[in-house]
Write a protein that binds this DNA or RNA. Structure first.
Lengths: 207, 207, 207, 207
DNA sequence: CATGAATGAGCATTCATTCAT
DNA sequence: TATGAATGAATGCTCATTCAT
């Protein structure tokens, strides 16, 4: 192994060390409580060092977001790999998203943060990363739909487009959970959520 | 006009003056940059005065959110009042939401903020206000669907439930606009958005 | 009743109304949390009104302190009136002070506040009031000692001087209770307290 | 001297610089007027820097208190080391406390503050420090009494317990000095103070 | 590469007091 | 008398970022 490779490896290790600390803080105290100083302390590194490996706090958040997306991908992948029918799978994928927002609230928060905060514009390299992670998830949904089309149970829709609609819908509905005590008052959020997924899938069936 | 009434009027004016300042700041610099001190400066009032009229920062945000919801309501109401068919109206309502998120980015941000920020939980009095504003909008959608059902062009769905799904979907999809340069790469967000609304409405038609 | 008297009476009533509010806040939330605004709110009066009846916050505190001293006086008086022997009474008075500091922590705090805060210099009228209240308590101790001297069980000490020493000692020792987890570690504060009173009284006995 | 040692030294210097500023403020304006911002200004440092060296305001106060206790210790130690008899020493120690409260009013205030303010409870680490400083002083008093017992001039009392009573008494009486214009009116505080110490010591003599 | 000391603007909030009505 | 709106300095504290070593 050459010097260059070793260097690159060490760099990656340090980046992970920092991410480990940030993740720990994210889990334990939530996004709001994360500061570079705290990450440095947790990682047993100098603050300056953090800045050497990450341009700023947002870049660390972005890395965590990617982790979250990967985790989500694993969940969806798992469903994709099972032997059930495409419509069943889609349903499970939708349900999984709600569950993910509850089980991995931390990661979900950070994903939502980037989605709803209007200010952040990603530098190109981050863009590419997220692109990849997000696209992979989307592809799973897409493939599931394609499978359904091929199997003849779904009509021939633009599967990519439908996937985006699918994800957009569930993402919006998950956020509406916050309204369960206000606007949803009386309505059962979970039922609405399931109903919505069902409706979406219903729209897919070939007559 | 008695002294009391004048007083009450002046009080209301001051509250508006503060809100004007907060709104201006929201427009110009975004949510992140709003602080009580800045609002006070902008409103040419002492900080203490702000606290005399609003219990805390969140109350101001909530007031702005309500403004936003009212504005949105007006838009939707306008559509509801026109003579078009329910399906056409629904379509327009969906489109209006996307447009609202662009035209009144500021208000949309603040609505999204409360929807996605996990920390904030409204005290009861604010809850009630928002409840009202949000519900009114939902009712318009709901009524439109009911009208369609009555007219026989929509099948008999639970209109309230469908409204929530409708709003949830468009809300989620609007947020996905941020991804137009990453995940959506190549896809036209607007087309997907319109496609999604169409799909939703399609699901409503009686066969 | 002339106009003047009525006026004076009403003034006294208002002052009491304010004191009632302040006392309530003192009990419920402690000294630190008392502000003129809160007192005004509690008393259902304007802030300005408070300032009309009391020059400043400290004057209200002083009035509360006097209340506390009167309460303490009542306790000591009660002991003084019983039929026990002077040495027994003294012992009970000492014990009562410790108990007062626990039972009426609120009042005790305010008394301590004025005693340990170096800044406050009382205006003459307050000085006179406190003089009176404090002196009355001291007189009870003094009289108890005098009774003991007359009865021949105490030697002929300067009873006033001894009273001050007595009160000073117990006051100092009560404060040391705070140290029970640090300096007193292992020692039982109450035992030391009782031991100290006993020692003081021991010093009084005629041989 | 290595870099590390120099660094550590500089850090200690900064901590002192901050303490110097705080002490100066304490001397000149009293406890009430001390704020972190003022300390920073006085020390010609940024506010953040203060927080870099001290976790919070209370830690600075505690450090000052410890200084005060050390100073007091030195005074008492000085007396302890002289060749006089134990009873004479005790008398001098008591007198020294009153003098300390006058000469080093600032330090005495801060000691009293922590003793009488009901709110502050020290975190463990600070507790331990104060424990030490306070205990050392107590030990000197205690040893003096033990010496007296050994020498046969004092009777066999529990010296630790007596020390606490001794300190408690003088501490309480010092505070009563504030009352010299009110309750003590006419009485000479110093005489009472001396009388009290004498009485305490009298109680120690073996018959 | 790595450090960590230093910064200072910034934060939300409180509060005694004033004063025109 | 009584009000209560208005003030603005002040509070303790945080934090992203810089930079000399």
């Amino acid at each position: 192994m050459g010097v260059k490779e070793r260097r690159a490896l060490e760099k990656e290790l340090r980046r992970n060390q920092i991410l480990d600390a940030a993740r720990k803080l994210l889990f334990e105290t939530g996004m709001k409580a994360i500061s570079i100083n705290k990450i440095a302390q947790e990682a047993e590194l100098g603050v300056g060092t953090i800045y050497f490996y990450y341009k700023n706090k947002e870049e660390i958040f972005a890395a965590l977001q990617e982790e979250g997306l990967k985790l989500l991908y694993a969940k969806i992948e798992n469903i994709y790999q099972n032997k059930k029918k495409p419509d069943k799978k889609l349903k499970e994928m939708g349900t999984a998203y709600l569950q993910f927002s509850e089980d991995r609230k931390d990661y979900f928060d950070i994903i939502s943060y980037f989605l709803s905060s209007s200010e952040v514009i990603f530098p190109l390299n981050l863009k590419t990363q997220i692109d990849l992670s997000g696209n992979k998830i989307l592809s799973l949904i897409s493939s599931t739909i394609d499978d359904g089309i091929k199997a003849g149970i779904f009509k021939a829709v633009n599967s990519r487009r439908f996937s985006i609609m699918f994800w957009g819908t569930v993402h919006g509905l998950v956020q509406f959970k916050k309204l369960k005590n206000t606007i949803l008052n009386g309505e059962n959020h979970n039922e609405i959520y399931q109903y919505s997924i069902d409706s979406l899938i219903d729209g897919l069936y070939s007559k």
